[in-house]
Design a protein around this nucleic acid. Structure first.
Length: 276
DNA sequence: CCACGATCCTGCTAGC
DNA sequence: TGCTAGCAGGATCGTG
C-alpha cells in the first residue's frame, strides 16, 4: 500500500528514468474505471501532445505537470506507475498506457482497481475533492496544528487522526503503526488523552519513520514497485507492522494485532500500554 | 461538526 | 487436495 515514502520513491525514480521533458504521444485507456475525470475519450484527447514538465507529489498524490494543467494519479492499494520499454509484455491489470516521445511507455497497473487518474482542469475545479483539503506534509506538521487536531478529534483514537489525510497528508496503515510504536503510544489512546510530551513524541516519530523508510526506497509488503519496477527495502526494518506474534525489537514481547479505526493494527502491548 | 460502519475490488490464505 | 469464506485497506458515502 503505497504511502508517502513509496509515492515519493516513484516520483524520484520516474525522474531518474528521464520522464521529465518527454511528451505524451498516445494514450490508451484499457479500463475506463482507472480514469476518474474526464471521460476516457476526452482524457486521451487532451493528454495527447502534452509535455511532462515535472513530476511532483502531494501527500499520496503523484502530480504530473503538463504545461498549465496537472495530471493527478493516486495509487491507492495496489497501483503501480512505471516506465517501460514499449516492447515489454503488458502485465495483466494494466489499465492505462501513455506512449512517450522517446518510444517508451508510462504504464499504470492496478489489480484492485481503487486507484487512477484525474486531469485537473485549469481553473482548479474537478480536482479530486481530497486534493483540495489535504493537510500539511508530515514534515510541516507543527506543534500547534497537532494540538488543534487532537482537540477537534478528542474522542477519536490517535491512529484514526494519523490516517486522516485532511489532518496530515501521506500516512497510511503501515507508517501510522510504526510511528506510534516508536513514540510508545497505544494506537487506541484517544487524541484528547495525550500529554504534550506524547503529542510531541508522535509528531517527531512520524518524521523519523518516514525519513527512514524513504532512505530505503519504501516498503514492499506485497505489491509496491517504484517507477523503474524495483521493490523497496524497508520491510526488513518494520518493528510492528505485519509482525503479529513476533518479538518486539525493543523489549521482546510478542507484537499484538487488533482492530483500531477499522484497520488491522499492530502494537507492542508492553512498550505501548493502553491505559494512561 | 464528529464518529463510525459499509462499500468498492481482486488475490491470497486459513480452515474445513 | 480442493473449495470457500474471510481478510487486506484508502478514501468516500451514508447514518446516528
Amino acid at each position: 500500500m503505497p504511502e508517502l515514502p513509496e509515492v515519493e520513491t516513484v516520483r524520484r525514480t520516474l525522474l531518474e528514468g528521464g520522464l521529465g521533458g518527454l511528451a505524451i504521444r498516445d494514450v490508451q485507456v484499457r479500463h475506463p474505471g482507472a480514469v476518474h475525470w474526464p471521460e476516457p475519450q476526452r482524457f486521451a484527447q487532451e493528454l495527447r501532445g502534452s509535455r511532462i514538465d515535472g513530476v511532483e507529489r502531494r501527500g499520496k498524490f503523484l502530480l504530473l505537470r503538463l504545461g498549465d494543467r496537472t495530471l493527478a494519479c493516486h495509487l491507492r492499494m495496489t497501483g503501480r506507475l512505471w516506465l517501460s520499454d514499449a516492447e515489454a509484455e503488458l502485465p495483466s491489470h494494466t489499465h492505462v498506457v501513455l506512449a512517450l516521445s522517446d518510444g517508451r511507455e508510462l504504464r499504470f497497473r492496478d489489480v484492485r482497481r481503487f486507484g487512477g487518474f484525474t486531469l485537473l482542469e485549469r481553473d482548479g475545479s474537478m480536482a479530486p475533492p481530497l486534493l483540495g483539503r489535504l493537510g500539511p506534509e508530515p514534515e510541516d506538521l507543527g506543534e500547534d496544528a497537532f494540538t488543534e487536531g487532537c482537540r477537534r478529534h478528542a474522542r477519536s483514537p490517535i491512529k484514526a487522526l494519523l490516517l486522516d489525510q485532511s489532518f496530515v497528508a501521506g500516512l497510511g496503515n503501515i507508517y501510522a503503526d510504526e510511528a506510534l510504536h516508536r513514540a510508545r503510544v497505544h494506537p487506541r489512546r484517544t487524541c484528547g488523552s495525550l500529554s504534550k510530551q506524547e503529542r510531541r513524541a508522535v509528531r517527531l516519530s512520524l518524521r523519523a519513520v518516514l525519513r527512514d523508510a524513504l532512505g530505503h526506497r519504501g516498503t514492499t509488503f506485497l505489491d509496491f514497485r517504484d517507477g523503474a519496477g524495483e521493490p523497496g527495502a524497508f520491510q526488513a526494518f518494520l518493528r510492528v507492522y505485519g509482525r503479529a506474534g513476533l518479538p518486539c525489537p525493543r523489549c521482546g514481547t510478542p507484537v499484538a494485532k487488533s482492530r483500531v479505526a477499522g484497520r488491522g493494527t499492530h502494537f507492542c502491548p508492553r512498550c505501548q500500554p493502553e491505559g494512561e
